[in-house]
Write a protein that binds this DNA or RNA. Sequence first.
DNA 1: TGCTTATATGTGTATTTACTCATATATTCT
DNA 2: AGAATATATGAGTAAATACACATATAAGCA
Lengths: 99, 99
Amino acid sequence: MIDYGDLNALSRFYQLLAEHNRLLILYSLGLECRPVSAIIADTGLSQTNVSFHLRKLREAGLVRGEKNGSFVFYCLPDPELLDLLNRFREWHEPANTDH
Amino acid sequence: MIDYGDLNALSRFYQLLAEHNRLLILYSLGLECRPVSAIIADTGLSQTNVSFHLRKLREAGLVRGEKNGSFVFYCLPDPELLDLLNRFREWHEPANTDH
DNA sequence: TGCTTATATGTGTATTTACTCATATATTCT
DNA sequence: AGAATATATGAGTAAATACACATATAAGCA
């Protein structure tokens, strides 16, 4: 019976990535900072639903939100996160390198 | 409204990582091939539960199972997967580099 | 052929969670 | 101040799922 550290926290982290609309939001952001309204337009999700997911992502540190006037711009906190997401995606979809 | 590819499949993939006992099983395997009974001993999970999770991991290609006598040895399919898991873990737990 | 060990699987249940609706807050403009 | 816009949040609901229990399959051994 081995201790592998806090896998609960890590699994909650993966849980956030385990939802296609949250991935959609993260990929929609990419390396840019964009207001919620732009995310809504990109994804076609409802305003309520985008805010619902952004809250979870924000609380876990997967996105940062910065207020600018009446807009809130969201960004990935770290370019390395996008890199990791892309690596995982390539591992998972090795056939799709050509489209 | 942009198409970011098949994020449904990718999210189902992350879903598999989004459970602490499945992470426990994956880390218990590491780069070795081990029989189910060893996983049970390592993790302290019930036999039923380990088989339950191994099936999901197997069906998604996150582990491979090879029969040897009355044992079934499970392995990660690819050392790069463990590397990715470790990178994600480091990204998520940057403070824990010293224990 | 039984008996035991190793692993898999179908069913039922309790918990989690993604989503919508209604509403709240905050900012800008007139 | 009042209206319009941008975003956030609480409550309720339907669907997904982790787990245990019981049982099935399959291999090795007496």
